[in-house]
Design a binder for these strands. Sequence first.
DNA 1: AGACTCAAGTTACCGCAGGTAACATCTTAG
DNA 2: CTAAGATGTTACCTGCGGTAACTTGAGTCT
Lengths: 215, 215
Amino acid sequence: MDTTQRTDQERSADRRRRELLEAADRVVLRDGPGASMNAIAAEAGITKPILYRHFGDKGGLYAALAKRHTDALLDSLRAALDAPAERRERVEATLDTYLAAIEARPQVYRFLMHPAEGGQPGVDQGFDVGKHSAPLLRRMGEELGKVIEDRLDLGPDSHRLARVWGHGIVGMMFAAGDWWLGERPCTRAELVRSLADLLWGRLAAAGDKVGGPGF
Amino acid sequence: MDTTQRTDQERSADRRRRELLEAADRVVLRDGPGASMNAIAAEAGITKPILYRHFGDKGGLYAALAKRHTDALLDSLRAALDAPAERRERVEATLDTYLAAIEARPQVYRFLMHPAEGGQPGVDQGFDVGKHSAPLLRRMGEELGKVIEDRLDLGPDSHRLARVWGHGIVGMMFAAGDWWLGERPCTRAELVRSLADLLWGRLAAAGDKVGGPGF
DNA sequence: AGACTCAAGTTACCGCAGGTAACATCTTAG
DNA sequence: CTAAGATGTTACCTGCGGTAACTTGAGTCT
């Protein structure tokens, strides 16, 4: 039948696509995000035009690659967010999950968030970057905002508050995590605790230092 | 004398450098961060090699350009942070200063934070990105961390706490600002208030919504 | 069987970017 | 007057993303 035939072709194409993505993944993780289309094609054992037939352009390949990792990370975060526990525990679990993920696979993290760092000197970095590094942050922010709005009673402005907080908290997690990953100034648990303390209002509650007007 | 001669030459070189930077600024603000070295050279009325003699490579030009804007923004923020007022007022003033800055000059903002978005389709984006978008965030985080440590009494772990909070708060401001700038879901004042509320512990204080276990 | 279709795959090329070498020119010191 | 050294130029290299045009090979119709 026509349908079975088409299905066969589609399956074959899908498998191929997955193989290509895995090859691309290997190259990107090895060479950094500046990996060239030629390098990826070579790793996959084929040549450039095929990549272009499958993914359109470099951005398409990047997007497909990023989507896989982003989805995986979001799944982990959702799990932590949905665990049955007290609010503070959940927040800490979510923070820890995120930090554990970026700690475990910094190459993937750098690819998603800082897509133009690796690569040889003198060679133009590539990958259309930026346009795709935001999406992960945005998606995380949106997800968290929804969860907050669903579960918390925030009064009349709850919609706005929840969304702002979602993006804000995600940004906090991101920037602190990025800094921590680079400098490793403390343990993961300490970082989690410090951030949760911040969210729990310790900034407002802290006393002024003697002699100054206080922050 | 040798010294006066050198000084004269150095002054001339510095002036030239400033002129080139201003030309580069114009181009980047007009064409987006994908501006090519050729375009910048043309705008400055000269040719490429001169740019390379002055800035080494594209990254050098980018860095010089970014430093100017970054320093300017940091000065504004320091002013808001140092104003004589209560803590909450200062926090709100700082948030508002940042948001006002990115609102007033989104082109500059996008150049600093998402340096590879503009540019024609089909053309490889440029500017070595990423490596330089972090610095602004990092610098802001460090500055804020110092201020917090200087002024707040945070007990034994004050050093770590202050630094974590510095980076975390900056990240919150950044992500929320980025999202807000893109979607404009509310007024600036509302955003400032919502973020300050978050920092003031309203997340911990909020009640659970009826029917659920609460975030 | 033999012509037909359609996807996978190739080579060879284009345009354009970043970056450099080699040559010209003008100013200034000795 | 000459030598140095910065300023500027043209012309070129490399490597990238992306595409056109051709070849191959598996399966389909008659």
